[in-house]
Design a binder for these strands. Structure first.
Length: 563
RNA sequence: UGCCUGGUGGUGUAAUUGGUAGCACGCAUGACUCUGAAUCAUGUAGUCGGGGUUCAAGUCCCUGCCGGGCAACCA
């Protein structure tokens, strides 16, 4: 039973779903539920958007409603088709399909007419002051603003000016259409907020059709209303916009969409703001939006995250109005949970250490049977080649091993998984005193991994046959940032100085069992004892496969060592 | 010093709307184990403070404290 279920298995309702359920029960909008996911196409979607996607599409599903995908494309200077394409791909990848696809830019004509309506009603006016003058008149949180000298322009003059703004007769910034509300309002947002600005810029969809563009506040709620969105769900920082959201809808007399807010996702050790992510991409600190260290959906996908894991994670963290910080391990555990059930097991050695089995006949080899998944018998078994020369993991050997070290050490016996028990007899070092090779003997009677005499070993190691192994590159990842909470970094400090310079470790001399040679990108695999991996289709070449480690396995030994 | 909003174990959350503070993750211990994984069992720790109403307060009232957001011609 999960935390958000009752003993009857019924879903507990979060703050937003509770409102929806109440509205449906009360017969509001005849019980109709319409939501929307409204990204601005100015960047790639990240795990925080996944939370919103799961919420909006999830609610529609659960309440028999509909959910649209709408691009909030009202700022042409920041937006691009590259982003609208990737956003659609990512939403679909998560497993959701929108009922209708819309663009705020499709509403530009309607929005323009509505702006004219407000002018005619005396609820909007053209301000011809400079941005600086307007800012100076806004007042502060404790002091009221002052009225613009243009505030009492006649309807005719406003209409004329606004038409000329549209017609392109003015330069950027020369005029501004503002809502006429109250310069003394306690809600700063209501101090005659801007509705339309002049921007002679090429829009990725409308081209040069427009040189005036509506502001968020005069586009978002109106778009919601046009789509008859019943529940307009957004994050908490839009809370202060709600009075304005309602004001426009009321003045226009259009469909009464309502806004509800929830807390955005913050994850430890990473960045979530599109601005900062863009900075990393442009600054070359990462390989692109889909760098496996990025919290973007494409990055997580390339890292090996599954949609199931991401959706389970979103389910897990819940929806509240509390701005918390979610530990990255919650995300990682969601992945482990999903992959443990589905990923087949293979053996691969990341940092090879050669072992020669001195009593194994030279020039010979054999095949041993290994199970593909302990969690799923139907996954069957495969044959793994074994020979006289093997590779094991460097960290699985210790010359002066403490008692708690269950792995290989001089004189100690361990099991090679699915193969034989071996005992280390000699250690070969180079001039620098580093261990470069191990000599060992094997017990033929333990073939398959069990001793007929019932003798036990504490450790079981993964291994590959030197002769048969394939070479591979493996990339290991760590947190993007060294600090847990990036928002705690003072503004005068460069947040990028807190980036983890060791977030990527590339291992170029890894040896994998031969069955990994033609592995599908997108199919998760567990390298036993090391973690879950996925083939990186972008980086893999004909000569050399490249695997990304998605996440490590839980590691009690590593924890013990830390103490 | 304005407005909006929030505060439940370390973290994320739940509490039938006033009635036994529960779940998950983490952590610890143990069982099992051919992955120091998985699984299972046990344990760990919490209602921001102070008043008040009440038979009964995480929940209602007052007050204090702390946090987040808002003063872009961004979204």
């Amino acid at each position: 039973m999960s935390a958000d279920e009752t003993s009857e298995g019924e879903k507990k309702l979060d703050v937003i779903r509770q409102v929806v359920a109440d509205d449906v029960a009360a017969g509001k909008h005849d019980g109709r539920v319409q939501t929307r996911f409204p990204p601005e196409p100015n960047g790639y979607l990240h795990i925080g958007h996944a939370k919103s996607i799961c919420l909006n599409f999830g609610i529609a599903e659960e309440f028999g409603g509909r959910c649209n995908l709408r691009f909030d494309d009202t700022n042409p200077t920041k937006e691009d088709v590259e982003y609208v394409d990737s956003i659609q791909e990512d939403v679909r990848w998560l497993g959701f399909e929108w009922d209708e696809l819309h663009f705020a830019s499709d509403y530009f004509e309607q929005l323009y007419e509505w702006a004219c309506q407000l002018i005619r009603q005396g609820d909007a006016y053209v301000d011809s002051q400079s941005p600086e003058e307007i800012r100076a008149q806004r007042g502060t949180s404790s002091q009221p603003g002052t009225n613009s000298p243009d505030r009492e322009r006649s309807v005719e003059e406003n209409l004329d000016l606004f038409a000329k703004m549209r017609a392109g007769e003015f330069a950027d910034g020369e005029h501004l259409l503002r809502a006429k509300i109250d310069m003394a309002s306690k809600h700063l947002i209501l101090r005659d907020p801007p509705m339309y600005r002049i921007r002679h810029a090429e829009h990725h969809r409308t081209g040069s059709d427009w040189c005036i563009y509506p502001m968020y506040d005069f586009a978002h709620g109106q778009s919601d209303s046009l789509e008859e969105v019943t529940h307009s769900i957004c994050t908490l920082e839009f809370e202060t916009h709600k009075p304005l959201y309602d004001w426009f809808i009321e003045k226009l007399g259009i469909f009464p969409s309502k806004q509800y807010e929830f807390a955005r996702l913050s994850l430890t050790y990473t960045v979530m703001s599109k601005r900062k992510l863009l900075e990393l991409v442009e600054g070359g600190q990462v390989d692109g939006w889909d760098d496996p260290r990025m919290p973007t959906l494409c990055g997580l996908r390339r890292r090996g995250y599954t949609r199931e894991a991401i959706r389970a994670f979103c389910d897990d963290i819940g929806i509240t109005r509390y701005n918390g910080m979610t530990d990255m391990v919650v995300l990682e555990n969601a992945l482990r949970g999903d992959l443990n059930k589905r990923a087949e097991r293979r053996m691969g050695v990341l940092r090879p250490l050669k072992v020669v089995i001195t009593n194994y006949p030279e020039g010979e080899s054999e095949e041993l049977e290994a199970v593909n998944s302990p969690e799923d018998e139907s996954a069957g078994t495969r044959m793994v080649p074994f020979g006289r020369e093997l590779f094991i993991e460097q960290e699985d050997f210790m010359e002066d091993a403490p008692k708690k070290f269950f792995r290989l050490a001089p004189g100690r016996e361990v099991r090679l998984r699915y193969a034989y028990f071996i005992t280390c007899t000699d250690v070969i070092k180079n001039d620098a005193g580093e261990v470069v090779e191990l000599l060992a003997t094997y017990d033929p009677a333990t073939k398959g991994g069990d001793a007929p005499d019932g003798r036990k070993v504490k450790g079981t190691l993964h291994w590959v046959s030197a002769e048969h192994a394939i070479n591979a590159e493996v990339r290991l990842y760590d947190h993007l940032c060294k600090v847990e909470d990036l928002s705690k970094i003072p503004d005068d400090e460069d947040w990028k100085s807190h980036l983890n310079e060791n977030s990527l470790e590339t291992l170029t001399d890894c040896r994998l069992e031969p069955s990994l040679a033609d592995f599908d990108a997108g199919t998760p695999v567990q390298f036993e004892r090391l973690g879950y991996f996925t083939l990186d289709a972008n980086a893999t070449t004909a000569e050399k496969p490249v695997f990304n480690r998605s996440v490590t396995l839980r590691d009690a030994w590593a924890k013990m060592q830390k103490r």
